[in-house]
């Protein structure tokens, strides 16, 4: 049987790998589009060289499309950079609202491939806790991943980040498929190890269709 630190280390590595793979996939798509735009530019140039008139607006349109993809790639790389730097500090003050929004961005491809959409509620202000940012992200990712499997295709997962009675919490809502899920299935040893490290608690309310992560004292 693995020790808690082994489980945490393994879970963290898997998380890092999954996010990196997803981001590299997004970058590949951007490169593929730029490849086609450059190819079309080459096609038009060849046609011009062969004496076929080409409307110059087409070149402007193509340049605009390339610029759009550069901006998209820049956003992807910024996310990758932010994610990579989340391992820099073992403990620091973080805003749960921001971290949840970031995890929703990172899980976009995974959600999209399953036909579901995580939808964070509008923020009423920051919800600050001091914790390990990387493993916090890992825990939110695992909860989101599990939540995505409990809603039907085309459905939204509500995410509410709030501070009530001195507690910070993240609620994943509208999870109608929680009914019938065994207590052994979720949280698994991975989530339990992360919860212990992050000094958080997790409850699954199958009647309300909610998974709630709570930090008892903030």
């Amino acid at each position: 049987m693995s020790s808690k630190s082994d489980i945490i280390g393994e879970t963290g590595l898997q998380f890092f790998g999954k996010v990196s793979a997803s981001i590299s996939h997004e970058i590949k798509n951007v490169l593929a589009i730029m490849n086609e735009n450059a190819g079309l530019l080459e096609d038009y140039t060849r046609m011009l060289e062969n004496g076929k008139p080409i409307n110059t607006e087409l070149f402007k349109t193509l340049a605009g499309k390339v610029l759009k993809q550069i901006q998209r790639a820049d956003g992807i790389v910024k996310r990758l950079n932010r994610f990579a730097h989340s391992v820099d500090n073992f403990a620091m003050s973080v805003d749960l609202v921001e971290i949840v929004a970031f995890m929703v961005e990172l899980s976009h491809r995974s959600a999209s491939s399953r036909g579901v959409s995580p939808e964070p509620s509008p923020s009423t202000g920051p919800v600050k806790i001091t914790t390990n940012p990387f493993f916090l992200q890992s825990l939110i990712w695992l909860c989101l991943d599990f939540a995505m499997d409990t809603v039907d295709n085309g459905k939204a997962i509500g995410i509410i980040t709030e501070e009530t009675e001195g507690c910070a919490r993240i609620r994943f809502t509208h999870l109608k498929g929680l009914t019938g899920i065994s207590i052994d299935e979720f949280p698994s040893e991975r989530e339990k190890a992360l919860l212990s490290l992050l000094k958080a608690e997790l409850t699954v309310d199958d009647n309300a269709g909610e998974i709630v992560i709570t930090w008892p004292e903030t």
């Binding site: 798509n29 593929a32 589009i33 086609e36 735009n37 190819g39 079309l40 096609d43 499309k65 993809q69």
Partner: peptide
């Protein structure tokens, strides 16, 4: 990726 398939189709 709409921009990919539309450009590829044109090419």
């Amino acid at each position: 990726e709409e921009e990919l398939v539309s450009t590829l189709a044109e090419r």
